[in-house]
Write a protein that binds this DNA or RNA. Structure first.
Lengths: 261, 261
DNA sequence: ACGTCTGCATTGTCTAGTCAATGAGGCCGA
DNA sequence: TCGGCCTCATTGACTAGACAATGCAGACGT
């Protein structure tokens, strides 16, 4: 009745609001009508209105700021470049490439570092060629931008490889962990990147202050030496509303037919 | 009371179920207790139980198969390799690299193709250097595996570039769209890949039969010729529960310091 | 043996309310 | 002028129901 179109009432209300968001009538940051007022305009109970709004929250379009109201989510993605690891020398040696880039844009990065010894999770164990009972050194970092958490960066190293090295010290490594690995005779020259897309676990959601309706990308890097030995696994958790992953390719010398990938 | 630990009742119930899933007590494919039985074991009304289950659905851990019950989601990810575009010659020329790989694993791929002329969406217009009022040729594909939709692959070409070519014909291009572009004097030798992580739009969700709690990766490729002209944009929509994006890197000749990216 | 029909368990939708929690803004006193 | 307190609008959590929709299995009929 209010909207033509089929489906349950809460879907129609959600469709109506979604359309108004996409059309720009409700711009990013705008306040949605209160639940109370929606009950009047659509002639349903508050429970139904709440169900409608919940749909939009789960789509990541709307955030709730209790008790101020519901607002259209603002999304600003910063560019995240996996390839930079080997591309550019940081101008601020105490930060890595990602954060370095942000400094140049006038933002204030910071990070926390913790080091622990523990058994590796199954995916890491498999990639390092270890058993799940083995011990790895884990360097856990949370990176912040302007005071809010931005992403996490957890590195896993085989214990025997980095025992006693700077990697086990919970402070920033100015010259980079790759450099330390090289000094230990395990220079990383090859890497496999994997990206997995899913909803955050409750742990991740709280560590990164991720709201409802925001998925994450898990960017996992396995680093290998020249002779194919895996020497580190990094797991980056990137909230979807804050990152745009970008990389570049140039066609190899001898081209072959390729279709529309 | 039922579980120690704080928070609202529905959260505790959700936490309880989540723990049982992660511990393996409720394995992938297992049926959750019915809402009715959960009301009894936790001493709450059905509305509260439903709220708890909804949390798990939105986390992507649980699917509802009405009216059979709720089940622990099965996840199987296939490896998706953006770099393959230029790497390997397909053994089945009528399919592209991604599907080709699946044939080898004994799965049955198929696809639908539609071609239309329309104005480009803003992100595509920006990357092709066009105005939003211009016209582009859009080749829309949906790829299926064993009968269920797997991902979508929409290519955008400037109209003047491909006018009258095979690209405008809604059938498979055996030798690949890249080859056709080359024959038109616009050989693609460089590409920029971007990956955006978000919840699917309702359109995407229905086109790909994506359930609640499953995010997507939007993999956007902008292809350039030798002299830097953008000649195509491809938008791949990859449901997160079905894909693992993978690519490889080798360190360039002159190494520079890099930190733990 | 085979199709059809019917009942049923289970989830989906919706109503009508109550009370709690919380951020913001205004009021008031020092 | 400034800090603290109070009010209030709004969302969050929960109860107690009713009825609809739908796959499946078992009964039934041919």
């Amino acid at each position: 009745m209010t909207s033509r179109g089929a489906g349950p009432l809460y879907q129609r209300i959600a469709d109506n609001l979604r359309a108004r968001i996409q059309s720009g009538e409700l711009a990013a940051g705008a306040k949605l009508p209160t639940e109370e007022s929606l009950t009047k305009t659509h002639g349903v109970t508050r429970a139904t209105v709440r169900q409608a709004v919940q749909v939009l929250v789960n789509e990541g379009l709307v955030v709730s700021e209790r008790p101020r109201g519901h607002f259209v989510r603002r999304i600003e993605r910063l560019i995240y470049r996996p390839q930079k690891e080997w591309r550019e020398r940081p101008t601020h040696p105490e930060l890595d490439q990602f954060m370095d880039e942000q400094v140049e844009l006038g933002r204030k990065p910071s990070q926390t570092i913790a080091v622990e010894l523990a058994a590796p999770p199954p995916d890491v164990a498999a990639r390092l060629g270890l058993a799940e009972g083995d011990t790895v050194v884990i360097r856990k970092r949370v990176r912040y931008l302007d005071g809010t958490p931005f992403n996490t960066n957890d590195s896993y190293f085989p214990l025997e490889l980095v025992q006693g090295s700077e990697i086990m010290h919970p402070a920033d490594i100015g010259r980079g962990a790759n450099q330390v690995l090289a000094e230990l005779g395990a220079e990383q020259t090859h890497a496999v990147d994997e990206i997995e897309v899913r909803m955050p676990t409750p742990d991740e959601a709280s560590r990164l202050e991720i709201g409802l309706g925001v998925p994450v990308a898990m960017h996992r890097v396995t680093g290998y030496t020249d002779n194919g030995r895996p020497v580190r696994v990094v797991r980056n958790v990137l909230p979807g509303d804050r990152h745009l992953i970008a990389f570049e390719r140039t066609r190899p010398a001898k081209p072959q037919k390729g279709d529309e990938q």
